[in-house]
Nucleic acid binder design. Sequence first.
DNA 1: TGTACATCAGTGAACGCGCGTTCACTGATGTAC
DNA 2: TGTACATCAGTGAACGCGCGTTCACTGATGTAC
Lengths: 187, 187
Amino acid sequence: MRKSKAETAETRTRIVQAAACEFRKHGFAATGLNELMAAASLTHGGFYKHFESKEQVAEEAIGYALTSMIDSLEEDAAEAPRSGGFKAVLGRYLEAEHRDEPENGCALAALGSEIARSGDGVRKKATAGYRRLVGVVASQLPGVNQEEATAIVSAMVGAIVISRLVDDPALSDAVLKRTRQHFLAKP
Amino acid sequence: MRKSKAETAETRTRIVQAAACEFRKHGFAATGLNELMAAASLTHGGFYKHFESKEQVAEEAIGYALTSMIDSLEEDAAEAPRSGGFKAVLGRYLEAEHRDEPENGCALAALGSEIARSGDGVRKKATAGYRRLVGVVASQLPGVNQEEATAIVSAMVGAIVISRLVDDPALSDAVLKRTRQHFLAKP
DNA sequence: TGTACATCAGTGAACGCGCGTTCACTGATGTAC
DNA sequence: TGTACATCAGTGAACGCGCGTTCACTGATGTAC
């Protein structure tokens, strides 16, 4: 049952992508390798042919999740009309769709408190993603303001976390809307 | 070995307080009942004399953690010099000490992503705490501005989450400082 | 107030279960000649 | 290019372990008379 090199590489990628979804949906601790491999249409035994440990796949999954999410935000910014890039990024991030689909969204918001308790590899990937996210937001601000972007990203991440934990849909919508408005209303 | 009613009530409270600390420090999923009862100087078998399930103690622990944290913030605001209440609240929350001691800090920041995946009871307590936190912040703003307070609380929670997950101490300090400055610098 | 009995907080062993990880096995792929 | 052998991706059973939960037991507290 040996697979070709191309197939093997493809399988590995599929596992990382499945892991990125499952971890964001259910959290690191609550996601078993069984569940993760099943999401990649494999049985759990083969996991260790691709990774050394759960920690290692978590590391790659975080990297993949953040990279693809920020790539997508950058595209939105680029496609926005002149000087509307900031509004596009904020609108895309602070949106009900993002809140309702953690498996495709920002890993910092979906896994934030668990990343803080994770190993060095995971935190390193998360830190790199965070820096890039701040850079993307800053690049859309007048004067490419890194300091302002830091505060904005704090609010973006916090708003998604809060909008997901609150049990009142109207309140949840309000958290997203008011956080968005705060930063768009500025002169 | 039966205990008096007063002792029993005191033990129950001690378990809730220990749970509030352990959960905030290690997360819901990663905290065992064994560890939790040991933190209250008891053996794990007695847990079910006080609670029906792990979920139930989580619910009470979240309630306790948020109530005591917000009580403390309110005190700080009340003790602050005239019209300095907002600065006091923001400074106390967005501070290295809060970042470094999750076990005594804000449960929304420490457990945010896990609360979103928890049962109704936990989310209800978290929602009540969130509403109260927004109210406390709003009460310190000129014009008691609820809408503004919503955006500020998003940034407060997000900044603590990010400051804990980032692996660079200087960056972590900067996240807290810049988020604080953004809201204090306003006219 | 004193006494006899029922209650129950806390202990520590035990339960089934699912976890991360390991392993023998299979058979198609890769490689050496 | 063909052939014989080594490699290894994937399977599914098995491993030890710690989890949440249950239980028999103890003995001090609470209660009924």
